[in-house]
């Protein structure tokens, strides 16, 4: 067992975890933040993307112990009270989700994508950046549209 402490969605948390506990297991099972999902066992699908110190990370690729001392943001932590993040709004307004299972990972990956590339995103960049996130419902068409809309909204707000 290892004792770990980290900040998750602005709160300090501490726990004793088995050494082999993955970050995603810790987030889902110990913290009860079930918005982060597990869709595969080979780090391909991206349903488990969270931010670790502001960068998108597949939380199935990291031990909880490796996240000790770091700042974690999950899908539950990006809205400001009742005010949704512009990316959340864009996914809703552009029908960028169907079953919703990949959605938290898509939104967290998008947030990182826009942070790295800026709001001037073309379709080719978006599609290429989504390599690590699989959706089986939407055919990506409306996800791409959602990301473009989010980037535009964020550019307009700047």
């Amino acid at each position: 067992m290892t004792t770990i402490a980290m900040q998750v969605n602005g709160k300090e948390v501490t726990a004793d975890v088995e050494d082999r506990t993955l970050l995603v297991q810790y987030i889902r099972e110990s913290l009860g933040l079930t918005g982060t999902h597990v869709g595969c066992d080979t780090s391909q699908c991206g349903a488990c993307v969270v931010h670790v110190d502001g960068k998108a990370v597949k939380s199935c690729t990291m031990l909880a112990a490796q996240a000790a001392g770091k700042t974690i943001t999950t899908i539950e932590g990006i809205a400001d009270g009742d005010t949704l993040d512009p990316i959340q709004v864009a996914f809703h307004e552009n029908h960028g989700l169907q079953c919703g299972f990949c959605t938290p990972g898509m939104i967290m990956a998008t947030k990182d994508m826009i942070a790295r590339h800026g709001t001037d995103l073309d379709e080719k960049t978006i599609r290429s950046e989504l390599e690590g996130n699989i959706c089986r419902c939407t055919g990506y068409h409306n996800i791409v549209k959602s990301i473009q809309a989010a980037a535009s909204a964020m550019a307009a707000a700047e």
Binding site: G35, I75, L84, F101
Partner: peptide, 8 residues
């Protein structure tokens, strides 16, 4: 779903 509060 967009806020991570779906219940699967």
């Amino acid at each position: 779903f967009i806020t991570g509060r779906g219940r699967y």
